[in-house]
Design a protein around this nucleic acid. Structure first.
Length: 573
RNA sequence: GGGCCCGUAGGGUAGUCAGGAUCAUCCUUUCGGCCUUCGAAGCCGAUGACCCGGGUUCAAAUCCCGGCGGGCCCGCCA
């Protein structure tokens, strides 16, 4: 495996260490990406100043004289307290190009680390369609899963289905007791939309009619006492709803590996066992009426939040209790357990981790929080009608893409235009959501969502299609990693950008900075477009093979980046 | 009332955790150029920003304290 950037970093580190030893110094130092454009790696000498009792600029200058130029290092310069290293152009170009030619679709992927990671995401309540307020969840989760897979993990994605509680019981009652003629028309035929009118009407009836409220209460009691009839009816409702939700997820190319039903932790007794264990803890306390709680004062949780109730007064379990059992189950099967959660879950997540610590769990789940998407007119609310469903966004984006294609590529058959429109429309949605750090607030605007220029998914796809087009026209050519023909500054910049792929995937996965991937994709596409505008490829004489090889490498890298983003790579658009 | 998160050009956004380099990243908007070379969903150029006030430091967008503005949370709900 030749990751040329790693080799270069190693060479620089060794060279600096040797030079420092020669000066009689053993201090640690760091390497960083220079902000200046004239170097490939920099070593700041400011931290060495105290130990060596000399000004940084002087240290840099004297170290520069002692650095031995070897391996992938081409030169070193002392500039205002920094040691600036330049990589050998041949090593960079040949190393990167041959690595891409060699690895192809696995270029950018790190070797397996033998670790299993579970990523729980989406897990939306099965009582209605996904709206864009929560659409960040599946897209962040799916992208992170792809990045961690790229980091060498064995990844399993999981949906936690909340099939327990009043909401799903109300919905089930509505489906069983309300006739289709009584409800308003649904937005769509899809199950998740079709069931919403029943849910709404059942909620209204429960509020206005005591007999209905009683029926639902009794149904809920039967559900919680384990009545098989009620449980199976609720299960059927949940499955229908989930079918609709999965159609939407499938539309944006999100696939979940495992579905875990919340009711399972009641049925298999693990929630009950968790309760019993917690009761024996020194942090546990009991209310006069019989409810149990944990006092989390010692865990840095204060005020009213420190009392964490884990059973009702009648001894039954709560959502949070079942969540503890659920997480113990995951922690026992995976090396890492990650959950993509809305920011409203922060306190609950903290309390969950306290409970796990009390139960002597060694590993902790790793929550990844995102802020909700709101509309310019405010918070999204299905009841107030202030809402944009993910299905609507998918339709709009696909339709917009279709119109764009029709004006540009009327030569294509209708079916092909529809297919490309879907790829481009979905690509725009996924890119637009994942490009922003999850914890930042996000206001949904149609003009941003349907932006296909600049920092967008279609920009990457367009660059990819352009590379494909050149290679189609080129026909046969000889792949060559000989960099002596690639002398243009744009060629160097493009290759240099592509050489950083491993670093990006490592940070995107291990540090969960998935927003780096779209930014990096934009960099690669942009460097390619600049190269394309400045350097002829097909009619370039004896540089033709080398340049076509570079185009092919770019196509490979762009396709791989789109893969990590879960975005399709259209060969024409 | 208490806790957590966010605040960077007209709009959006990277950099903040691990403080450093003469121009703080990129997109969009606005203005001006480029299709008889391979796809103009593109390329080139111009304009424009670190919420406020203190502090630490040789050095602060970055760390600390205090404000201000926005989001989220504080159920024997899920």
């Amino acid at each position: 495996m030749t990751m040329i950037m790693d080799t270069f970093r190693k060479d620089v580190t060794e060279a600096v260490r040797d030079a420092l030893r020669k000066a009689g110094c053993d201090e640690p130092f760091v390497t960083e990406m220079p902000s200046a454009d004239n170097a490939d790696l920099a070593v700041p000498c400011f931290t060495l100043a105290k130990a060596m009792k000399r000004p940084p600029a002087e240290i840099a200058a004297s170290l520069a004289k002692d650095i031995v130029i070897k391996g992938t290092i081409a030169k070193v310069q002392a500039v205002s307290g920094y040691l600036n290293f330049t990589m050998s152009r041949d090593a960079l170009m040949n190393g990167t190009i041959s690595d891409i030619l060699d690895k192809k679709e696995t270029y950018g992927r790190l070797p397996s680390n033998g670790k299993r990671v579970n990523i729980e995401h989406t897990s939306t309540n099965p009582t209605g369609p996904i709206h864009v307020g929560r659409a960040r969840n599946p897209i962040i989760g799916d992208t992170l899963a792809r990045c961690l897979s790229g980091c060498g993990y064995d990844v399993t994605t999981e949906y936690y289905v909340n099939d327990v509680g009043k909401q799903v019981v109300i919905l089930t009652w509505g489906i069983d007791n309300i006739s289709p003629e009584e409800v308003e028309k649904a937005d769509r035929e899809k199950a998740d939309h079709a069931l919403v009118p029943y849910y709404r009407l059942a909620n209204r009836m429960m509020e206005s009619r005591p007999d209905v409220a009683d029926e639902i209460s009794s149904m809920l009691r039967r559900f919680e006492s384990g009545d098989p009839d009620v449980i199976s009816r609720v299960r059927r409702t949940t499955e229908r709803m989930l079918g609709g939700l999965n159609e939407t997820l499938s539309d944006i190319d999100v696939k979940l590996d495992v579905y875990t039903w919340e009711s399972r932790f009641i049925e298999d007794g693990s929630a009950k066992r968790t309760v019993d264990e917690l009761k024996t803890s020194k942090y546990a306390g009991k209310e006069d009426d019989g409810a149990w709680y944990l006092d989390l004062e010692d865990f840095g949780v204060h005020g009213t939040n420190k009392k964490f109730t884990f059973t009702r007064s009648d001894g039954t379990t709560l959502y949070t209790t079942r969540d503890i059992a659920y997480h113990r189950h995951k922690l026992s099967e995976y090396d890492r357990v990650i959950g993509v959660l809305g920011e409203d879950q922060k306190l609950g997540s903290k309390q969950l981790m306290c409970a796990l610590e009390i139960l002597n769990e060694k590993k902790m789940p790793e929550p990844m929080f995102y802020s909700f998407v709101s509309l310019p007119e405010g918070k999204m609310s299905t009841r107030k009608g202030v809402v944009v469903y993910l299905d609507d966004l998918i339709d709009e984006s696909t339709e917009y893409a279709y119109n764009e294609i029709r004006t540009r590529r009327s030569d294509l058959p209708e079916e092909r235009m529809r297919e490309i429109a879907r790829t481009v429309g979905i690509g725009a949605i996924r890119y637009n959501i994942v490009r922003i750090q999850p914890e930042k607030q996000f206001v949904f605007k149609w003009s941003d969502a349907l932006n296909f220029d600049g920092n967008s998914g279609p920009f990457l796809q367009y660059s990819y299609a352009r590379a494909c087009s050149i290679l189609r026209k080129a026909g046969e050519f000889k792949r060559t990693a000989d960099a002596s023909k690639l002398t243009d500054e744009y060629e160097l910049k493009l290759v240099k950008t592509m050489s950083r792929f491993y670093d990006i995937i490592r940070a995107a996965g291990e540090e969960r900075k998935i927003h780096l991937v779209p930014a990096y994709g934009h960099e690669v596409a942009s460097a390619f477009n600049q190269f394309y505008a400045a350097v002829p490829v097909l009619n370039s004489g004896d540089a033709r093979d080398a340049r076509l090889t570079l185009v092919e490498c770019t196509r490979t890298v762009l396709r791989n980046i789109l893969g990590y983003l879960g975005i399709g790579a259209p060969e024409e658009m």
